[in-house]
């Protein structure tokens, strides 16, 4: 049995706003084991980003506990236990692609030879070799997002937290990046927490799908996808098991939504 990496107990977060409290998260209890690929899916505003930010120590919970490898989120952040990929590529416009990837490595105080080798290998991993000297604006949106993934990977974290990394990309690029991400995950055995709006994307990538519902943000259902195996070609999306799980996710999303109206 693999070890539990992320463990949330009755996690809650209420934002105090001018028009009263917003219950972004309520009673979230979730265990994520090492090497798992967990997707968070749910309607807009159900707290997916907030949950990811709590795990990353970018937001403090107002109730319950989270532990990451037995540490508090803050300790885990200070130990650089995770790489975070934002919804936008968030590259620094004044740095070239290689210098952008170098940024976290400089912060970590790595020497230039180590930096250079990590930049090279991670750019190759996301198929961006040859674009080292380009500035972000010279790259397409998909390429920028790949660069930001390379930047997160270069830190060599045990854990990847990804907030709708492919949300703004077209279907074809998205498929391609999904395949690459899956290969990468199979190769590196990292634990991934992945936020998405897309049912096929969630089913294709995940070992476990967390369906969330809004107001207050809660976990509606946790769906296991391990029966799809680890070797998943793109056309697995036409297989009956895939369609059955996708259907289950869709039903879960509907049920979570219904008593809203």
């Amino acid at each position: 049995m693999p070890e539990t990496v992320i463990s949330a107990q009755n996690l809650g977060l209420t934002f105090e706003t001018n028009d009263g409290p917003v219950h972004a998260l309520k009673d979230i209890t979730l265990d994520i084991a090492e090497g798992e690929f967990v997707s968070l899916i749910g309607p807009s505003g159900c707290g997916k980003t907030t949950l990811l930010r709590v795990i990353a120590d970018l937001e403090k919970p107002t109730g319950g506990t989270v532990s990451i490898n037995g540490m508090t989120p803050e300790q885990a952040r200070l130990a650089r236990a995770y790489g975070y990929v934002f919804q936008q590529a968030a590259l620094l416009p004044w740095r070239t692609i290689e210098d952008n990837i170098s940024l976290p490595l400089e912060v970590m105080g790595l020497d230039s030879a180590t930096r250079a080798s990590r930049i090279k290998s991670n750019l190759e991993l996301v198929n961006l070799a040859g674009f080292e000297k380009k500035f972000p604006w010279q790259l397409s949106g998909g390429m920028q997002q790949r660069a930001s993934i390379a930047r997160a990977l270069a830190v060599e974290p045990q854990m990847l937290l990804m907030d709708e990394p492919f949300g703004a990309l077209d279907e074809i690029v998205r498929d391609h990046l999904n395949e690459q991400l899956l290969k990468l995950w199979a190769k590196t055995k990292k634990t991934v927490v992945f936020v998405t709006h897309s049912i096929p994307e969630a089913v294709f990538l995940s070992t476990k799908i967390v369906v969330m519902s809004p107001r207050p943000g809660r976990i509606h259902e946790i769906i296991d996808c391990s029966e799809l195996g680890t070797d998943r070609p793109l056309d697995i999306r036409e297989s009956p098991e895939f369609l059955r799980i996708a259907h289950q996710v869709r039903e879960g999303l509907k049920a979570g939504h219904s008593y809203d109206e």
């Binding site: 120590d57 952040r77 200070l78 650089r80 975070y84 934002f86 936008q88 968030a90 620094l92 912060v107």
Partner: peptide, 13 residues
Amino acid sequence: EVMHLDLMRTYSA
């Protein structure tokens, strides 16, 4: 941007 500041925070800069 807040996102870039958050990014630096995730690196514990």
